[in-house]
């Protein structure tokens, strides 16, 4: 509770939001606030100003293209993804979003906020990595599109630079996806998680909670031994904390990768 002094502004367009971020050094974009406001309560972060992105319709919405490509505005909430008919084109998205935190958080938390905060225990960084999402970043000088591999740079660090905003996440068509996690209690914070996706016959597995950024693996097949081998070959050195030793996390990464891959294979084949 009890944040430090902060300034606030609510822009009326994305362009204005970017101007405000550029003009006010020390300002941060406020998305759903379900992470940032908590960090500010702990006074672990104290931006000088908050540029509130809520209400910017340009950043919201889910579009399904005829080829099956999904484009999701960065300020689209988890609840909107869960409820969206379009998002069901890639069912894993809604399924995973429904596991994040609780109703209240899902009502305000956004896909953009989740991946931009890049907390290693978040659900979506490994998921967008596995499904090969592309992130559109807008700055004063225009737009650029980066892959998930390029997007996540470190704990709480992404390719979104100062004065820039993530505007949308683009996800190619597909259905061969899987996700598995061991959480604190049912649907709680992830102790370890893994997302998997089979696209054109090739498998991508992304591991969460084991490194600063999602660890992307490309096992030979979804066969359990192949996946386990790929995880071992990655030489993971996961962090130890109160919920898991490094050894336990490394083990969970293997088990969950196998499970996510199996689910992906089952769905790809179906």
């Amino acid at each position: 509770m009890l944040l430090r002094e902060v300034e606030y502004v609510k822009p009326s367009s994305v362009a204005e939001a970017i101007e405000l971020l550029v003009e006010n050094e020390g300002a941060r974009a406020l998305a759903g606030g379900q992470t940032l406001i908590n960090v500010m309560k702990a006074r672990a972060a104290s931006p000088d100003a908050l540029v509130d992105l809520n209400g910017l319709e340009e950043l919201k919405g889910i579009d399904l293209a005829p080829d099956g490509t999904l484009t999701i505005g960065a300020m689209t909430t988890y609840s909107e993804i869960v409820a969206s008919a379009e998002a069901k084109a890639r069912p894993i998205l809604g399924e995973v979003c429904a596991q994040i935190a609780d109703v209240q958080v899902r009502n305000r938390g956004t896909i953009g906020g989740n991946i931009c905060s890049n907390d290693p225990t978040n659900h979506l960084p490994p998921l967008v990595t596995a499904v090969g999402a592309r992130m559109t970043i807008l700055g004063r000088d225009g737009e650029r599109v980066v892959s998930a591999e390029e997007f996540f740079l470190g704990v709480y660090m992404t390719a979104v630079g100062p004065g820039e905003l993530l505007t949308r996440v683009t996800i190619p068509a597909g259905k061969g996806d899987g996700f598995a996690a061991v959480t604190l209690g049912v649907d709680g914070t992830c102790i370890a998680n893994a997302a998997a996706s089979i696209q054109d016959g090739s498998l991508r597995v992304a591991l969460g909670c084991v490194d600063a950024v999602p660890v992307l693996l490309r096992p030979e097949s979804a066969d359990a031994d192949a996946v386990r081998e790929a995880v071992r070959a990655a030489g993971l050195e996961p962090p130890s904390d109160v919920h898991a030793s490094s050894e336990y996390r490394r083990h969970l990464a293997e088990v969950l990768a196998v499970r996510a891959a199996a689910q992906a294979a089952e769905r790809a084949g179906g």
């Binding site: 509770m1 606030g33 379900q34 406001i37 908590n38 309560k41 702990a42 609780d102 109703v103 209240q104 958080v105 009502n107 305000r108």
Partner: peptide, 22 residues
């Protein structure tokens, strides 16, 4: 003080939120 407990839940414009994270 971490947005976990929900004791502050209210409905804002028809949407259930935790009023400690807004």
């Amino acid at each position: 003080d971490t947005g976990n407990c929900g004791a502050c839940s209210v409905i804002v414009d028809g949407t259930l939120v935790k009023s400690c994270m807004m």
